[in-house]
């Protein structure tokens, strides 16, 4: 393999310093395994009645951003619809959830997508308008 020329490297460096670097590609902020285990950890914690604050102060802290979780609506169960796909810098999963209904009413079903990143912090975020 040819070594990059010294002039090429210096030229690239000067170009970057001059601010003409253009768009570069970001690395993923997770791996599929890490993302899936973090999502399961977060949803299990919700199902077991853990509060958003306690989850975010656990070890390791997980930040689950979902307005229903924040408001304390109980999660009765969930299933993962897919094995996740890369979206942006994270993994996106479609989840079917069963949430406790209001007093005397049936459980509510909900189909949502969560985006998961694990570096530098573990964040699970409800995706707006998807699926």
């Amino acid at each position: 393999m040819n070594k990059p020329s010294r002039f090429g490297v210096v030229g690239l460096l000067l170009c970057q310093l001059a601010g003409c670097g253009g768009q570069s590609v970001m690395e993923l902020a997770t791996t599929p395994d890490e993302a899936k285990s973090t999502l399961v950890q977060a949803l299990d914690a919700w199902k077991n009645g853990t509060s958003q604050k306690d989850l975010s102060e656990g070890k390791p802290p997980v930040f689950l951003q979902d307005p229903l979780f924040a408001r304390g609506v109980p999660l009765q169960g969930y299933t993962m619809e897919n094995e996740g796909k890369v979206v942006g810098t994270g993994m996106s999963y479609i989840i079917n959830q069963k949430l406790k209904g209001d007093a005397g009413k049936e459980a509510k079903a909900r189909r949502v997508a969560y985006r998961v990143v694990t570096r530098p912090n573990r964040a699970v975020t409800l995706e707006e308008g998807i699926p």
Binding site: M26, A29, P67, R122, A123, T125
Partner: peptide
């Protein structure tokens, strides 16, 4: 910053019905 695990003022903050 394209990463919800990082705080940046240029992101959009999600407040929900808290």
């Amino acid at each position: 910053d394209f990463n919800n695990g990082i705080s940046s003022v240029s992101d959009t903050f999600y407040l929900g019905q808290v």
